[in-house]
């Protein structure tokens, strides 16, 4: 087991200013000790130059780094199990390797970037922030999300966006069955094809302002592609409300 790094606030401050190698922490310390140690790291005020740390020891552990609320950049390498980064705020996490089910469940803000595949329920209950997965994702990606954005470079499984109340899902590849099932104010952008759309959602043209917005989001998520290549999937009622140009939704969609 790697020893728990001894925290030295002065050292952390020097590290953040001089761009020296990121400090190392280990998952072997246990989730609670690691959580506390990360929260003790002093951070910079600048969003553009976040204090960086590296967390080692990824070997498929479950429930890693949940409920972080710290403006810090974390690099990880290796596979992770289920429910990694659940209910996080502020933290900008980049991990290489596959992740299990429920990655970034209920994330509030910040970002999680996964260079690998993810299991089912990625981003379930997301309320804010960005989840980017540079691989494929299982079923029910973005289920019940209430805000934020999910970007998937590859394919997604069935029931993507099921029960999503708000937010955006961008799919670089194809989608499985029932895309957008029971979705409310959420929007899906898809480059490939869907095995089937759910009842009550439809394909809609990408408006100019959405092209611009999506283009920026693709750049931000480091996903290659032109926004024009994507199509928009929205609830029929939302589209009708847009068409009415009233800026409000018709009551009782269903």
């Amino acid at each position: 087991m790697n020893p728990m790094p001894i925290f030295d606030p002065a050292d952390a401050e020097r590290g953040s200013k001089s761009h020296r190698a990121a400090r190392q922490f280990s998952l072997d310390s246990g989730p609670q000790a690691l959580h506390e140690a990360i929260h003790q790291v002093l951070v910079t005020e600048s969003d553009e130059q976040l204090t960086q740390i590296e967390v080692t020891g990824s070997a498929g552990q479950h429930s890693v780094l949940m409920r972080l609320d710290h403006l810090i950049r974390i690099q990880m390498k290796g596979p992770l199990g289920d429910y990694a980064f659940a209910f996080n705020s502020q933290a900008d996490i980049r991990t290489t390797g596959e992740v299990g089910n429920g990655v970034a469940e209920g994330m509030v803000s910040g970002a999680v970037r996964v260079r690998g595949d993810a299991g089912v329920g990625a981003g379930a209950g997301l309320t804010g922030g960005t989840l980017a997965i540079y691989g494929t994702v299982g079923d029910r990606c973005g289920a019940a999300m209430r805000g934020g954005g999910i970007f998937v470079r590859g394919d997604v499984g069935d029931e993507t966006g099921v029960g999503a109340l708000n937010g955006m899902i961008v799919i670089g590849g194809n989608a499985g069955h029932n895309l957008g099932d029971a979705m409310s104010n959420a929007t899906v952008f898809i480059r490939g094809s869907a095995a089937s759309l759910a009842v009550g959602v439809t394909e809609a043209p990408l408006r100019k302002r959405e092209q611009l917005r999506l283009g920026l989001l693709l750049i931000n998520a480091s996903i290659r592609g032109d926004a024009k290549e994507f199509r928009r999937i929205v609830p029929v009622a939302l589209l009708e409300a847009e068409a009415s140009e009233r800026g409000e939704l018709s009551p009782n969609w269903r």
Binding site: S184, N185, A237, P251, R254
Partner: peptide, 10 residues
């Protein structure tokens, strides 16, 4: 003026 699900059931 912008209720979720258009103010309907979910």
């Amino acid at each position: 003026d912008s209720p979720l699900a258009g103010g309907g059931w979910v």
